[in-house]
Write a protein that binds this DNA or RNA. Structure first.
Length: 651
RNA sequence: GGGCUCAUAGUUCAGUUUGGAUAGAAUGGCUGCCUGCGGAGCAGUUGGUCGUGGGUUCAAAUCCCUCUGAGCCCGCCA
């Protein structure tokens, strides 16, 4: 029983009232009013009805309340979840919760040791692709937005009992990687960074910038690049092997950064393997069969295979020289993700991850392939994924929409392919200045990041700065902590701060990254949540010492009805929204909702903390309040799990 | 030229899907509160013609249109 049940009961009351008074049953809203003075919940039914029949909203509201709802409430009696209903002069019908009976849900949860997480996944299968950064540079703050959105959604699906796997696409056969190989093989750059004291991926990022400057007056190098791309596609040459070696090394370094912010994956999908797998040939066959593409004999696309499109936005999938375009590769990747063709891959272990899970990578099936099935093969064999979510920034929106359309042409029955876009991260003029770059136009307030031009701030740089600031502050407040503990907490603060910061705003809004702002740890930040957690844990620790065990208070003495201060009620009501919030963020694929909720929940708790004594209260009240604190901690811990925020009993 | 997105307090952002009550947070400024369960906190105060102009409606930040400003996308590149 949570707020959802209260809402349901209100709907029952209103529906019955509509029947009693012979009004049409129409869609209406039950939600929280803007001010608490108006009550706990409100409905707009009177306004909607007044649109149909010519009567004032206020009259309808009064009629519904006085001629039906009040009688119903009387009948249900004192165990009702609704205390009363009021017809407001404006036309709103407001309801107050009967907290005496409502609060009992806390005790029920507590006794049954139940989590509030709704089990709505029903083992549905979800595929999420995120990160997918070209393996030629280190991750910058813009890439991190992608990683955090993807990883938080993964955690959300996982916790609500969906079978979920996470893909990271490694484009090892494009120009970006080829640029690096040209640098190492034909332009005298060393592929060894032993002398430099930076990570290999960062080192490569720097070379990539220098290489692009070199191209300007060296056309021969561009020819070399073409050669390299061809060799990578063919595989098996010495150059291809060297490329594999470099890409492997960079991917491992990139993953270090991803793992540092507590993201994890199940499978690396390697583009060169896709090219060798004949997956495109199968997809091509499918597209021809479904009449989605045709061979153009006239016009600008003469001798090409093209996607049909009525709006005259046809896209070439096979060039006149027979080679495959970028979108064609993307379509075949999508076809594979949705399991619309036979899986040409088998999977081999790439690495162990921080959460002890195995990260796999694609390799081609061959005769001596082990017959023993691994978890990835099993995932794709059982049944098709219910949903495939691809997370890429909004610059790819047009392309992704075309892919979605092609997919629904192939498989019209379902809508399984979901593109989740988000706006990019740009740098504030201050931060551009900080990294020693100059803005072209002094009037520009922001500048977009560019790996090629060297305009970016690496993810690790930001984390390091946050870490060192947090470390200083933790030490100041906890002089008794040893260095290991301080480091651990500082890292937890830094990682959580980045995650929360990038998650808390709308996906369709560009983030202007500013180092100074990012280092601020006051107000609406993850630290506010972590601090609330530590405060609650401190009460529990001093209260009955059952740190880490949430459900071992003597249940029989607890009286939920004593938790009737308006501050306690506010906290309880907030807690009771947890499952609604989870469902909403899941349905809208919007993790931001969870950050807003977490902040509100902690605001309620901090108000409780400042105003309502727990340990100093008389014994029954103390036990009851202690229970409330423990449930708060439990809910918050669940939110932390989804948002990837680390919790510490002391901070 | 065509398409998409955004514009709300000095600043960073909620609220727009589904119109409804006095437009909310955070931060900054100002003012209180630590011998009390941790002051990285709490309470208060300051601050907004919701980009412009029109339309629909009993009612518009929210829906429709115009214009302005910002950003992105539109290749036989990836």
């Amino acid at each position: 029983m949570t707020l959802k049940e209260v809402i349901n009961q209100i709907r029952q009351l209103v529906n019955q009232a509509l029947m009693d008074l012979q009004y049409d049953n129409i869609e209406y809203d039950v939600s929280e009013p803007p001010k608490t003075d108006f009550g706990d919940l409100t409905t707009n039914i009177a306004f909607l009805l007044s649109k149909r029949i010519h009567k004032k909203p206020n009259e309808i509201a009064r009629e519904l309340v006085y001629n039906s709802i009040n009688y119903q409430l009387k009948k249900i009696g004192k165990h009702s979840l609704i205390l009363n209903a009021n017809a407001h002069i404006s036309g709103h019908i407001n309801f107050n919760i009967n907290y005496t009976s409502f609060n009992n849900f806390l005790l029920k949860l507590f006794k049954q040791n139940k989590s509030l997480i709704p089990n709505i996944g029903d083992n549905n299968k979800i595929v999420i692709e995120h990160t997918s950064v070209n393996p030629n540079k280190a991750l910058h703050i813009g890439h991190i937005r992608n990683v955090i959105i993807g990883d938080s959604l993964y955690r959300l699906f996982k916790l609500t009992n969906h079978k979920t796997i996470v893909l990271n696409y490694i484009d090892d056969s494009g120009v970006q990687v080829a640029d690096l190989i040209v640098a190492f093989k034909f332009a005298d750059f060393s592929s060894d960074n032993i002398k430099k004291k930076i990570k290999f991926d960062q080192y490569c990022g720097e070379i990539y910038v220098k290489m692009n400057e070199l191209y300007n007056n060296n056309l021969e190098l561009i020819e070399k690049r073409k050669l390299i791309i061809k060799e990578i596609e063919q595989g098996n040459t010495e150059l291809a092997q060297f490329t594999n070696y470099i890409v492997d090394k960079i991917v491992k370094q990139q993953l270090e950064s991803c793992w540092r912010i507590k993201s994890r994956y199940d499978l690396l999908v390697i583009e060169s393997q896709i090219l060798l797998s004949k997956l495109w040939e199968k997809t091509f066959h499918l597209l021809k069969e479904k009449n989605i593409i045709y061979y153009s004999t006239t016009g600008k696309n003469v001798n090409c295979w093209v996607l049909r499109d009525e709006q005259n936005e046809e896209k070439v999938v096979i060039r006149s020289d027979g080679t495959v375009t970028y979108i064609a590769k993307d379509i075949s990747f999508a076809v594979w993700k949705l399991n619309l063709v036979d899986d040409p891959f088998t999977y081999t272990k790439f690495s162990l991850q921080w959460d002890k899970s195995i990260l796999w990578k694609t390799i081609l099936k061959s005769e001596n392939t082990n017959t023993h099935l691994n978890p990835i093969e099993i995932f794709f064999m059982e049944k098709r994924p219910n949903k495939v979510i691809t997370i890429i920034d909004s610059r790819q929106e047009r392309l992704q929409k075309i892919i979605s359309r092609v997919i629904s042409d192939i498989d019209p029955s379902t809508n399984r392919y979901v593109y989740l876009g988000y706006e990019t991260v740009a740098l504030s003029s201050n931060s551009v200045h900080d990294i020693g770059m100059k803005l072209d136009n002094i009037n520009k307030k922001i500048i977009h990041m560019s790996g090629r031009k060297g305009i970016f701030i690496n993810a690790d740089t930001i984390l390091d700065e946050l870490h060192s600031k947090a470390s200083y502050e933790v030490k100041k407040r906890n002089p008794d902590f040893d260095d290991t503990t301080i480091n651990e907490i500082a890292e937890g603060i830094a990682v959580s701060a980045i995650r929360y910061n990038l998650l808390r705003q709308d996906l369709d809004k560009m983030i202007t990254f500013d180092m100074k702002e990012a280092l601020n740890l006051d107000g609406d930040t993850s630290l506010y949540l972590q601090y609330s957690f530590a405060r609650a844990m401190r009460i529990i620790e001093k209260g009955d010492g059952s740190l880490g065990e949430f459900y071992n208070i003597n249940n029989d003495k607890i009286r939920c009805d004593l938790l009737n201060h308006h501050i306690e009620r506010d906290l309880i009501k907030e807690i009771s929204k947890f499952n609604i919030i989870i469902e909403e963020s899941l349905n809208t694929l919007n993790p931001k909702i969870l950050t807003k909720y977490a902040n509100k929940l902690c605001t309620r708790f901090n108000s409780f903390y400042e105003n309502i004594p727990v340990l100093g209260a008389e014994v029954i009240l103390k036990l009851s309040r202690l229970m409330l604190v423990k449930i708060f901690v439990n809910v918050l811990a669940n939110l932390f799990e989804i948002l990837g925020i680390e919790s510490f009993p002391r901070i």
